[in-house]
């Protein structure tokens, strides 16, 4: 059994009377692709922020990459990567400058940055494009580059917030190829998505409804548990019970 890289126990976040995340208990194993689903306003973002060390929980316990989310947020930040909905690349910087920037903020030495840049550029097949501005790149390349810079410091865990929204089906799949490859090397992937077919690519899925984790298992078991034909049905069945209306 692989070790747990994320472990939470009754993790809770309150905003006044409002319980955004209510007693979340789950663990994510090293090298796992963990899908984190939920309707808008279910509490996904709140939970993810706590795990990334951006928000201190109200109660409960959680460790990420072995570090406590209350005390060691700096260490957590050093050991995770983050990729948000839209690519966090600077459109007006070149490919090389973007890589150098992200490697730089994670404190890689100049030599490491140089080696890493070359390696990345080679891996992505961008040799001829390093001096191009990112905004001139096709969407698919941007996305790959975006993922690559998110893991430039070789984090143990990558958090991805709807990384594929609005992307064409081919690019979307190419992107999942990258995710698979990274997971295959032992990196843990924590991903949210609105595409239900993508949730099937995950090893395990949790579904949040109104701040609570309502279901957590492999896609196969979830479908069996809810006697559903697809993840779409599972999700729809659970999420429609939601009472919350706010974001």
């Amino acid at each position: 059994m692989a070790e747990s890289v994320i472990k939470t126990e009754k993790l809770t976040k309150r905003f006044g009377d409002f319980i955004a995340a209510n007693e979340l208990t789950f663990d994510v194993k090293a090298g796992e692709i963990f899908g984190f689903l939920g309707a808008n306003g279910a509490g996904k973002t709140t939970a993810m922020r706590m795990l990334c060390g951006l928000s201190i929980p109200s109660s409960g316990k959680a460790t990420v990459a072995g570090f406590d989310v209350y005390k060691h947020t700096d260490e957590i930040k050093r050991n995770i990567g983050y990729m948000s909905q839209k690519f966090s690349l600077y459109e007006d910087l070149t490919v090389a400058e973007n890589i150098r920037f992200y490697a730089g903020i994670y404190g890689l030495s100049n030599k490491e940055i140089k080696d890493k840049s070359e390696e990345l550029v080679h891996q992505l097949g961008l040799e001829g494009e390093t001096k191009k501005l990112v905004r001139e790149l096709p969407l698919g390349w941007k996305q790959k580059l975006s993922f690559s810079v998110a893991i430039v410091h070789q984090p143990k865990i990558v958090f991805m917030d709807e990384p594929t929204s609005g992307v064409d089906p081919v690019t979307r799949r190419q992107f999942w190829d990258l995710i698979y490859a990274a997971a295959d090397k032992g990196m843990t992937i924590f991903v949210t998505t609105h595409y239900m077919d993508e949730s099937e690519y995950c090893n395990r899925i949790s579904i949040m409804v109104d701040g609570v984790i309502r279901a957590l298992d492999t896609p196969y078991n979830l479908k069996k548990q809810f006697s559903a034909n697809s993840m779409d049905e599972v999700f729809y069945g659970l999420a429609r019970e939601a009472k919350r209306t706010g974001d």
């Binding site: 939920g38 309707a39 808008n40 929204s165 609005g166 609105h194 239900m196 779409d232 999700f235 939601a242």
Partner: peptide, 11 residues
């Protein structure tokens, strides 16, 4: 694109 960024239920 009325359903972009909207969850599966709302969609």
């Amino acid at each position: 694109e009325p359903t972009t960024g909207v969850d599966a239920v709302s969609r």
